[in-house]
């Protein structure tokens, strides 16, 4: 991440044998990251497809949107429809829409913080405003921290979600829903984790020597990855959580 970009000014035409300009004028790593994101589309489509294919195919509960009585193995839209079922045998719908709505909002806002971080780095050379509050708003550190914290908050929500699901009787081994749900969201969570580590690395550079407009590309690439992980969640939130 910290290595010097191929198109950095100190390479541009100072020596006769320096690297020739790229064919498109674009940076190598940015092209590679977009190709990587294209590839990731297929990865998440495979995972999401599997979840959708197995939706409604589990032979036993708990289920994402339905109530389930283990003793009679019956499914119902509501607790009332379930009829007679001992409390210990009753499993409520697993997915917790209020909590996930909150975590979805957190991840969306992390994308906002990310673009503001990029804007701050791009404008790092401009004279700083005098007001303390304005200075904070203009600082790349502020927004990188904000993004990382919001990302970590999302991961915290996910950890809460996973543990509460396990307490409610759903593990990755329980049924097809459990296997496909935990694998899909786990893969997404792993991507967020990598993103947070990436942001922390950028923050490390920022504290060490300050991120300058010349570093905008490094931030841009991390941002592209971060936003992609966000748009994947937009799809997951609708397809897995909201559609019943």
């Amino acid at each position: 991440m910290a290595s010097v970009a191929k198109t950095d000014p100190h390479h541009a035409g100072d020596a006769p044998h320096a690297h020739p300009p790229t064919s498109t004028g674009l940076n190598h790593r940015k092209i590679a990251v977009w190709a990587f994101i294209g590839s990731e589309c297929m990865l998440f489509v495979s995972l999401i497809s599997t979840y959708l294919i197995y939706k409604g195919k589990s032979l036993a509960g708990p289920y994402p949107h339905e109530w389930w009585c283990r003793a009679t193995n019956t499914i119902a839209k509501s607790a009332a429809e379930l009829g007679q079922c001992a409390p210990a045998e009753t499993f409520k719908p697993i997915l917790n829409i209020p909590v996930t709505s909150a975590s979805t909002f957190v991840l969306l806002m992390s994308s906002l913080a990310m673009v503001l971080a990029l804007a701050a780095v791009e404008n790092a050379d401009l004279p700083m405003p005098s007001g303390a509050w304005d200075r904070i708003l203009r600082s790349s550190k502020t927004w990188l921290w904000m993004t990382a914290i919001l990302g970590t908050t999302f991961l915290g929500f996910q950890a809460y979600e996973f543990t509460s699901f396990v307490h409610e009787g759903l593990t990755i081994r329980t049924n097809l829903f459990g296997s496909s749900f935990f694998t899909l969201t786990g893969f997404h969570g792993a991507h967020v984790t990598v993103g947070v580590l990436w942001l922390l690395a950028l923050l490390g550079i920022d504290y060490k020597r300050g991120l300058k407009p010349a570093d905008a590309l490094n931030v841009d690439i991390a941002a592209l990855y971060w936003h992609f992980v966000d748009v994947v969640w937009i799809a997951i939130f609708t397809l897995i959580y909201l559609i019943q």
Partner: peptide
């Protein structure tokens, strides 16, 4: 750059078609 658009939308369309 339009190249990035192609690099993203091409794979995305194939992925959605597969879905």
């Amino acid at each position: 750059h339009k190249l990035f658009r192609a690099l993203f939308t091409g794979p995305l369309l194939i992925a959605i078609g597969t879905l």
